[in-house]
Amino acid sequence: MGTFLGWSIKRPSNLTKLLVLAAVSIALIVADARHRHIATNLDGVAARLAYPLQMLAALPSTTIGALWHDLRTNARLRRENAQLAQENRLLQAKTARLGALTAQVERLQHILKAPAPPGYRETLASILAVSSGPFTRRLTLDEGANAHLYVGQAVIDAHGIVGQIVKVGPDTSQVMLVTDPNSGVPVVSERNGLRAIVFGTGSLRRVKVPYLPITADIRPGDILVSSGLGGIYPADYPVAKVKRVVGNPNEAFLTVVARPLAHLNHHTDVLLLWPKPGRTGRARG
């Protein structure tokens, strides 16, 4: 190809190129996995570049969704409307009762000089993309560091805990679902206060509850709510419902399979929670 200081230079062979690039890749992977702060800047650039592409990719499904919505018949909308109005009345009645109860609890707590009542600020964020990438299920939200999101923030929906934020870009952020194999949520059983930790399995319909002794009192149908321990998730939000409990007397632990309660498949909007300043994780009495 040419000469350089008397050495003849050849075009690098494919194998050389592959080995060099593989070494760079492995260095990047290790840097990314071990030292997030080194790779964060590069990641921010990648997230910036990715944002318009993600918008473009979401365009057909949002357009088709809007069209489908417009094409629904008037009758169906009217029926829905009536049904919703009825539900609304019921919910309003319930809310009124809740309001009274909350006021009562506040009064009682004030008397007991207990720490502040559930003090979380919340905001809606919409989901830009679901399941971005092979072999992982993550949500991408349309808010990022510019809206004061932070890594480790709790994400919930109307039915329970969705997950936590694991990556924040300038205008987007990524949510690790409770079903992710890396996710662990400290919970208590609503029925008897049994403490446990819910781990993801990678399947959207299944989570597992390992490390429960063979004698633990847990049955199918038990609701597991977050305990607030660990400080990431707020207390008392539903997480999962126990589906199957298998106890083998030869093993130390039960095999417990549960179904996550948040509607992980159907989201368009999720709630983000900010703890109000001065509040610390609440321990259960």
């Binding site: 990047l28 992977i29 996995a33 790779a39 650039v45 990715a50």
Partner: peptide
Amino acid sequence: GLYGSLLGEQAL
């Protein structure tokens, strides 16, 4: 960058 996987995973 798009998948949110570890930087270098898909590249490799």
